[in-house]
Simulated scan of single mutants.
Amino acid sequence: MKIAITGGTGLVGRALSSELVRNGHEVFILTRKVNEQSINSVKLVQWLNPGDQPESQLEGIDAIVNLAGATINGRWTEEYKQKIIDSRIKATTEVKRIIMALNDKPPVLINASAVGYYGTSLAGEFNEQSGPGIDFLSDTVQRWESSANEVKEFGTRVVLCRFGLILDKNGGALPRMVLPYKFFGGGKVGTGDQWLSWVHIKDVIRGILFAIESSKLDGPVNFVAPSPVTMDQFGKVLSLVLDRPHWLPVPGFALKIALGEMSMLVLEGQRVIPEKLLNAGFSFQYPELEKALREILSE
């Protein structure tokens, strides 16, 4: 297959492009700056600059995977929140323009999204039929998904990957979560009762490939393992795997002072179930947290 990826230098983009190349597929990475030559099956395509015409190199592609967008891990000033929104809408709007310009429309757009769509809850359980929340992240995801869905007018199937917390040793939140345990300072964060919907990076990549090939799978799809845990349970499993104590609590007010509004990412959560992936026949390689963390942290 010929697959175009935006956000190809991010956590998911790097892992996805490596897996695609390993399996003999042709990969096009859309990037603002092409400062190196394309290598083997990876071709670098410049986009989002005045005058760029990436569509000239993308005829005949089988799928576009849109992962572009500013990280949400910066302090949420009003300016940075606008950057989070604008970066996603700008990239997705450009993806739509590219598809419109192609003579041969790609059969599928795989568009990144997030379980933040559902808002937060200590007691509720969410699947793909659940409604949206009313906070900043939910509003951002709703705008992002609405922009991606505009591609349907070209006959392109749209899959909205609502990612949970992606676990990987090379990036994302896990290395920062592991650090205090390595120094014997790990413990409960906030009340510890907040739900954490997580997924192993390998299941993310397998799930994206499954979504590309599964023509009946469309719309929002939760990319989370089928066994969400509370933050306290997560810490206890992490301490078991690392053979370190789970004893030193981090009070919620301290995180609110340190992180501001962004503290909701760790102090609030939601229990999300991957109903559509399971019903479509997808089998998780890492459905349980302990197995996932042991694989990731084994080296």
Rank of each mutant, 00 (worst) to 15 (best):
V266R: 00
S227V: 05
W144R: 13
T9N: 15
G269P: 06
L137A: 10
Q129F: 04
P251H: 06
R157C: 09
T77E: 04
F136R: 08
K81V: 03
S214D: 10
S41K: 15
R244K: 15
A91C: 00
W144P: 08
G133T: 02
P175N: 10
E19K: 13
P220R: 06
A101G: 06
L267S: 06
E213Q: 14
Q37K: 15
I296A: 05
P249C: 11
I208Q: 03
A91V: 01
G252N: 12
F136Q: 03
Y181V: 06
A91Y: 02
Q53H: 12
A70G: 00
V266W: 04
R88Y: 02
V250Y: 07
T230L: 09
T77A: 04
R206N: 15
I257D: 00
V204Q: 02
R244Q: 04
S18R: 13
G51K: 12
P180A: 10
I134T: 15
N103M: 01
P226S: 13
L137K: 07
I5W: 03
V27Q: 05
N40T: 02
S41N: 14
T191Q: 01
E275A: 14
K43W: 00
C161N: 13
I273D: 00
G119C: 09
K236D: 09
I98K: 11
F184K: 07
I98S: 03
G235E: 05
P107Y: 02
L174C: 09
K33Y: 12
C161W: 01
A292I: 09
L278V: 14
P251C: 03
P287Y: 11
V250Q: 12
V204M: 03
G281K: 10
G116Y: 01
P106V: 14
L109E: 06
P175R: 03
S138F: 01
D168N: 14
R32W: 10
G207L: 04
E79T: 12
W144Q: 09
I5R: 04
I98R: 02
M177H: 06
C161S: 15
G235T: 01
G164C: 10
G119R: 11
D168P: 07
G69C: 04
G281Y: 13
E261Y: 06
S147P: 00
R206Q: 13
A280K: 08
K169N: 13
V250C: 08
G252K: 13
L167A: 12
P107I: 11
L160I: 04
G172C: 09
S56K: 15
L238E: 09
